[in-house]
Each structure stands twice: as structure tokens, then as C-alpha cells.
Design a protein around this nucleic acid. Structure first.
Lengths: 211, 211, 211, 211
DNA sequence: CATGAATGAGTCTTCATTCAT
DNA sequence: GATGAATGAAGACTCATTCAT
């Protein structure tokens, strides 16, 4: 059902085994080039070179350069969202403090375990298609966090979604600054601690005690 | 101390009024093009057209395109830093709550009064030269906030600079998400309130009561 | 007499029914793509897609893309020539007027019954191989018309071939303009009438009365 | 007032003298390449090479390759239409015979004085933009011929425009066949004579004697 | 035989920069 | 100083053809 003229959709699904392999190689190469050369020099020629395939192969699977980048971003975002959704299910019914501790840990781990890759992908997410993808992932995560907050054993919030948004913004926003080297090394090290402290303090302030 | 081959330095100082005017026109035009066409289509031809000067004129004042973009970013960041420094001086000796209220207000106002422009400039700040500039501004603001925190009448912090960094990261990070439309309209409206609440709660948690 | 490296010759003769069927499908698909996408986008991939065979299959029957296009054109031209030759045999010994009435009718019917197809094929006939094919068909038709004119019951012409050429040029030339939409709808409708009138008047002018 | 996003409009008008020179060189080179290599190989690289300018120069004046081709065609068609309009004014009030003699001469001269060029331009006129241009020229010429026919001293026609269309189609259609080498050399030589004869005979047949 | 993934030369187009006027 | 025409390297994308499966 796909591939009907949406410019950012992949062009075709692999029917032979080597197709899937080529796609993987392309994704890997894209990230490598992005890391090594930056978004501006991350062009089809370099990606193909790095992937050791011809430029033509890119266009077997993607209608244009942007759709390849979007696909790479999509994969990453999916993975991050999945990890967080998973965690949100596991942490249900804890106190606000345990929830925030786990959430901050999970998000920072997901985003900072391969910081170079995350950083490279920000370059994509700013482009035309990336913003939409980011929003979709955002929504998934927000819903997961809002659901999680609802189950908090000690506190209750009037507007779970708003609160979730604030918390996610603060965490994701800080992470971005870390990835862009806009914080000192020390803060990078201690960010987990402070974010846990801050979000927990915030929730206690804004929430009402459950009976 | 003149411009000896630093590629991002402006080429000459505006010794004549005419020069200063041209530079202003170029800056304004650059922002307009950035807004209207995006970073990718923001090229010298379009800037010159919009500014109603010839492309050659750009090279009278800047050794290359990037140095023009850097200069535009520089101006913006300078202005933001200055506003915040100014405020930090005015708020000295207040309570943590009044300080954070004023600070959050000031930063959000500075960054969100012309959101389109701020957003456009993010595109520049990601490029090679922009990161360095952003860091410099960051340092100025951090010092101002750290000094301000030191004067807080009610609380004392062991590491003012770290705390300042955390607070700035959280505020700036959230703002970026607003500018990238990654938050709902409602959160955009209520962001001030929540950031004030959160940062104040955080400071109260981490600080020690002054005697 | 097999295919020894002539680049526009079909590669092998359809000895099996399956082959003939595939060739038919390819011809049909080629015309469809030509109509829908134009000569520039009429490439092997699209033809294969439309024909629901693989690109590889095209090369089973034709040594290259141009030879497929040439074959398609050839078929069309053969069919047209055959129709006209047939008619020329049937009309022998009539008066100039009845001859021209029949001839104009026949040619217009042959070329305009599926105008879209005829139009599409013009795109091919302009290419390197098509011109030669067109000439061959032209010669066949000319000979048929010249022979026919010779049998006219009322008039005699000094140079039947020249006269035939003039008449064919005028008819075919007008048809082409119709197919390229360079005439109004009304003229398209009345073309038969005017061509009959004009060619008959011309022949009466240039011919000598038979005794 | 021009140049507002119409993809086939020239990009800018020359303000310096050498611009006009470059445009002329480009037109000339385009026709040369068209003649020597055919429409398929008539690409920007070859045109620029032949014109001894850089490819970039093409894009100073035309937004894309097609608009250059269209401009070249336009010039040619304008010139042809002008010549015919001029003649139509000069021939007014003659007999049908003198009118047709002059008209056939004029059109054949205009189209066949530089047959290679005319032939080359047919390749363009089949493309997207060319058809529209051809129609416009067609209309101009038709109006001129219809007006001319109205002034014929000896005959009167019920529908001047239809008659003009028929005549133009027949003449233009034959010329095309000459240019595509679909007629023998002898017919090419005698075409003028036969066309004059045929069109005059046709007009005498279809017209009514003026009193 | 049929398939369709892979190839890579060839096109169009953009844009920072230069330099003659 | 100012102008804008010219440059040409670089990038995105296409498509005829091949060949391993």
C-alpha cells in the first residue's frame, strides 16, 4: 500500500535477500558520513562510496536523498521511543521519585549511549521531513509518560499530558545541549542527578497527594 | 589587531556611515532570506537581491558567505547575552523565587519575542562557526547567572556555576523545543509558569538556607 | 539470414507462442507508456513495469531499447502501408474523384482512428532509426498510389510518382498537424472534405484528359 | 513585469552589453548543437562548450534547459510569422492566384532558406513548451492569411479562417515532410509549383466569384 | 529462461567567488 | 567603491544495460 508518490517514503521493499543487506549498508554508511563529514557534506556520492555501492543503488530504495536520511532518522527515533515505552510499562505504580529516576536514566542512556550518532541525527531532524518524524516520536513518548504519571502511587496531576510535555522538554532540551557541547564536562557527568532532582521537585510542587 | 586572514572575521570595520548602513541592510536581508527560504536557499545572490545591493558588495565587507552568517548570529547572540547580563545586575539580592521569575521571563522574552528569527538563527548556529559563537555567549550568560545566584538573599549554593549551567540548559533547551514546534500550543503558553516553578523548586532542593 | 549484430533488429524470432505473447505485451506496454509519459520518460523500467515482465525480459527479445521502439514503430507503419496498398488495389480504374475520395478516407481512417497512438509514434519516428523506417513505408505507399493513378479512368499524368508524392505529402502533412493539435476542432472535422476537394482539383488541373 | 516563476520565461533581461552578446552566442550554439547532435544530445554541457561559455552562464539567462530551447524556437517562429504577416499586407487586393503564388513563395522561403535550422527546431517544437509557442505563431499567421483572403479581388469565401487553416496546414505539412527528407529531391525542387497550383485550384473550387 | 538488484556514465542545476568594467 | 556577468566545481538524480541467482 505504500510508495504512492510520497516523496519521503522508501521506494520499494526488498524482495531479494541482498536488498535488505544493501539497505542496512546504506543506513550504516549514512550515519558514518554524517558523523565524519557533517550534514552539509553528507551527499549521495559520499554515502555510496562509504557503503561501497553505486549511487544508483540509493535510488533503488529511496526516491531522493532526503528520504534516505529520513529513513535513517526514523529507525533511530523508533528505537528510542520503543525503549522509553518499554520502560514506562515497567515502572508503573512506583512513586514519583522512582519513576523520574528511572525515566531520566532511560532517556539519557538511550540518547547518550552513542552520543555521536545522536548528534549526527539532530542534523537530519532539522530538515524538512525530520521535524514531522520527531513529532510523531514525541507523541508516542508523551503518551507513555502521561500514562505512567497517572499510575504514580504518591501523587496525582490534573493534566498529565501537560506535565509530561514539560518534563520531556526539559530532559530532551538538556540532552540536546549536551550533544552540542554547550555544557561543561562536569555538568555532562552530573546531568542525571540534577535532572532527577529537578523533575522530582517539580512534580512534588505541582502534584496533589493521593489519599 | 586588524583582520589578518581569519576567515570568519568581518573584512573591514565600517569607518564610514555608508558602510555601517550597508552592513545593517545585509544583516536584515540575511535574516529575511533565512526566514523565507531556509538555510539551504539562503545564498549570496538572494541576500544581495533582498538587500538591493550587488553580490560584489557582500565581499566588500565579508571575506565569504559564512562570515556574513556568523556576523548575523553574533549580533543576535550579543544582544541576548547583553539583555540577560543587564537583568542579572538588576535582580541582585532578591530571593531565589524572584530571581528565577525574572530570569525565566527575561530569557523567554529575549528568545521568543521574534521566534521566527530565533528559529532561523538556529540553522546558522549548527554550522561550523556558529557553535563557537554560541559557546562564548553561553559563558557570558553563565557567569552572569552564577554571580546572580551568589547574591540570592535566601539560599546558598556550593557550586554556583554548575547550578547556573543546569538552569540555563533546562530553560534554553525547552525554548529550543518550542521554537521547533515540538510542544503543543498550550505548553508554549504555560512554559513560563512551569519553568519558574521547576527551577525554583530545584534551587530550593539543592540550596542551603542562608543564615 | 539470422541477426548478426544489426543493432535495431529484433534479437530472436518468436518461435514459441509464449515469446510472441511477450512481444505483444511489450509493444502494447511501450505504446501505453509513450502515451502516458512521453518519449523522454519512456524507459525500459517503465515499459517492463507496465508489461508486467522484468527489464531483463526486454533484452531477451531486443538488443537494446531503441530496437524495441523501432519494432513498435515498424509494426504500426507496416499496418498503415498494408491498409493503403490494399485499398489502392481495390480502387483501380475509378475516376480521379472516386480514387481521391477513397484514398483520403483510407489514410485519414488509418492514421486518425487511434490518434493518440499515432501521435505517440511520431516521437519515435523522429529518432535515428525511425526516419529510415518511415521512408521505407513511404516508398511502399508511393508506389501503390502511383500505380493507382496510372489506372485512373478519366485523367492521365506525366509523372505519376511525383504527383503521388505531392498528394501523399499534402495528406500526411495535414494529418500530422491534426495530431499535433495545430488545427481547430472544426478543421479537424472537415479535413476529409477539404482534402478530397483540394487533391481532386489539383489532379484535374495537372492531368490530361484520357481519350 | 516578467520572470515571476514562469518556468519557461527567460530569467533576466541583459543590462550590460555583453549579456546580449552571450544570449546571442547561446542561441547560435544551441542551433548548432541541435543540428550536429540532435535533440537528445543537445544538452547544457554541449551548448555551453559550443558557445565557449560556462554552463553557469546559461542559467544566468534561463531558469532551465527547456526555457533556452523555447527561447530559440520563439525567435525563429517570431521571425517566420513576421515575414508572413508582412507579405500578407503587401499582397492585399490581388487575385487568388497572385496571392497564393506570393504566399507559397514566402512561406517556403522563410522555412526552407535555412532548412537545417528549421529542421533542428522541429525537434524543440515537439517538447512541452514548443507546442504552445507553435500554436501562437499559427494563430498570428492564420489571422493574416484570413484577412488577406478577404481582400481577394476575384473570389469570396464563406469561412475565411477555415480556408486559411486548410491552406496553411497543407503548406506547412508538406514543408515538414521536405525537412524530414520524406520526399525526393525532385519533389523538393518542384514543391513550390505544385503547391501554388493545388491551393489555387482548391480556392477556385471552394470560392464564389465576386461581382 | 526470467528476474530485478546493481552499475556508473551522463544530465541538469546551484552557488560561492572572482574580476573586468 | 560598486556592479553583475562569468566561472566551474559539486551535487542530485536518471536510466540503459549487465549478470548473479
Amino acid at each position: 500500500m505504500p510508495n504512492i508518490k510520497h516523496p519521503l517514503m522508501p521506494r520499494k521493499s526488498p524482495v531479494q535477500a541482498r536488498s535488505a543487506a544493501t539497505i542496512d549498508v546504506l543506513h550504516e554508511a549514512t550515519i558514518q558520513v554524517l558523523l565524519k563529514e557533517g550534514i552539509v557534506r553528507c551527499n549521495t556520492t559520499r554515502i555510496a562510496e562509504r557503503a561501497e555501492v553505486s549511487v544508483g543503488s540509493i535510488y533503488q530504495y529511496y526516491p531522493n536523498r532526503d528520504s534516505l536520511l529520513a529513513a535513517v532518522l526514523q529507525r533511530h527515533l523508533d528505537s528510542v521511543a520503543q525503549q522509553i515505552e518499554q520502560l514506562c510499562l515497567e515502572c508503573k505504580y512506583g512513586t514519583v521519585e522512582t519513576i523520574m529516576n528511572a525515566l531520566v536514566d532511560q532517556i539519557l542512556t538511550a540518547k547518550l549511549s552513542d552520543p555521536e550518532q545522536s548528534k549526527a541525527l539532530y542534523a537530519i531532524s532539522g530538515e524538512r521531513g525530520g521535524i514531522e518524524l520527531s513529532k510523531q516520536m514525541n507523541d508516542r513518548i508523551l503518551k507513555a509518560i502521561a500514562s505512567l504519571l497517572e499510575t504514580a502511587s504518591d501523587l496525582h496531576f490534573d493534566e498529565n499530558l501537560i506535565v509530561a510535555e514539560i518534563i520531556l522538554s526539559v530532559i530532551m532540551g538538556s540532552i540536546r545541549r549536551v550533544l552540542e557541547n554547550q555544557v561543561t564536562h562536569q555538568v555532562e557527568q552530573e546531568l542525571r542527578y540534577h535532572l532527577k532532582l529537578m523533575t522530582t521537585a517539580y512534580l512534588r510542587q505541582i502534584g496533589k497527594v493521593k489519599v
